[in-house]
Computed example of a mutant assay.
Amino acid sequence: MAWPDGYGKRGLPVVDSTNAEAGRIAKDLSGPEWILGLQQTAARGRRGRAWVNPLGNFSATLVLRPTETPDIVALRSFVTALALYDAFEALTGTASGLALKWPNDVLLNGGKVAGILLEGIGGPGGHLAIGIGVNLIAAPDVSQVEAGAVAPVSLLAETGVRVSPEKMLEALASAYAAREESFVTYGFAPIRTAWMARAARIGEVITARMATREVTGTFEEVDEQGNLILQTAKTREMIAAADVFF
């Protein structure tokens, strides 16, 4: 799998977090850069939660300097999710059991195998750090995740395929570059269509939990702005940010 043109790469044996490293190096970068951390000592997920990351699992961050407005930049969570899906399919030879969970998780046989964390660096007009964690060889115990959340799984346990972090990075970098080119060239529409075709629980009742309230309804679609659309008994809800529970 060829490394994509124009993308830098650096590997770190130990790092506090690859997103934190992205913040330290962003100002000195001349183009997009992948950071692979073989061991993280302070990994984190969405909303500042700890990310359990055993040795042999995958932790990386892609640092970009996007030129779009923040609402468009945020759509790269969908770009990244599709790239992960593509990479898993390339590495295992099948898409069986793979699905995408709004807003930024990848599922395998119903369990969470990968998560995505987008963070801005340097304020408006600055860099974007796309943090990615994949349970390649081991998954956290269910007791280590939020109550009611999708149970974590590992690629190895679910497929029998053992993938090194370095091999995962090669496949993901190649897949991401292709999806990024599509996004920049054609906009969100084809990304949205591809994401919807791989979405988990379309047409089913799910719950979106926000800081001050939660909404339960039928998952209809993701709209042109990336919002989750739920049809409840009373109204059609448009949700920009939430944690989703099945």
Rank of each mutant, 00 (worst) to 15 (best):
G6K: 08
Y7F: 11
Y7M: 06
K9E: 02
K9S: 03
G11L: 04
G11C: 09
L12R: 11
L12W: 11
P13T: 00
P13Y: 13
V14I: 10
S17G: 12
S17V: 06
T18F: 12
E21A: 15
A22K: 12
G23H: 03
G23Q: 00
A26R: 08
K27G: 12
D28M: 03
S30K: 09
W34K: 01
I35P: 02
L36P: 01
G37S: 07
L38R: 15
Q39P: 01
T41E: 10
A42P: 02
R44T: 11
R46E: 07
R47Q: 03
R47N: 00
N53I: 06
N57S: 05
L62R: 04
R65T: 04
R65D: 03
P66H: 04
T69L: 03
I72H: 00
V73C: 03
L75A: 08
R76F: 01
F78A: 12
V79G: 13
T80N: 04
A83H: 08
E89Q: 15
G97W: 05
A99C: 05
A99N: 06
D105K: 01
V106Y: 09
L107S: 05
G110A: 08
G111R: 12
K112L: 09
L117Y: 05
L118T: 07
E119S: 02
E119A: 04
G120M: 02
G122R: 13
G123T: 00
G126W: 02
A129T: 05
I132Y: 02
I132L: 05
V134S: 08
L136T: 02
L136C: 02
A139N: 09
A139V: 00
P140M: 06
P140D: 06
P140A: 04
V142K: 06
V142D: 07
Q144H: 06
A147G: 02
A149V: 10
A149Q: 11
A149K: 05
P152K: 10
L155R: 12
L156D: 01
A157F: 08
A157K: 13
A157T: 05
R162M: 07
V163G: 11
S164A: 10
K167V: 06
K167G: 07
E170V: 14
E170N: 09
A171R: 05
L172H: 07
A175G: 09
A175V: 00
E180S: 07
E181C: 14
V184C: 05
V184F: 05
T185I: 04
F188M: 09
R192G: 12
T193E: 15
T193N: 14
A194S: 12
A197P: 10
A199M: 13
I202L: 15
G203D: 12
E204K: 13
V205H: 00
V205Q: 06
A211P: 10
R213S: 15
G217R: 04
G217V: 14
E220Q: 14
E220T: 14
E220L: 14
V222I: 15
E224K: 10
G226C: 10
N227V: 05
N227T: 10
I229E: 11
Q231A: 15
T232H: 13
A233V: 15
A233M: 09
R236Y: 02
I239P: 12
A240Q: 10
F245D: 00
F246D: 08
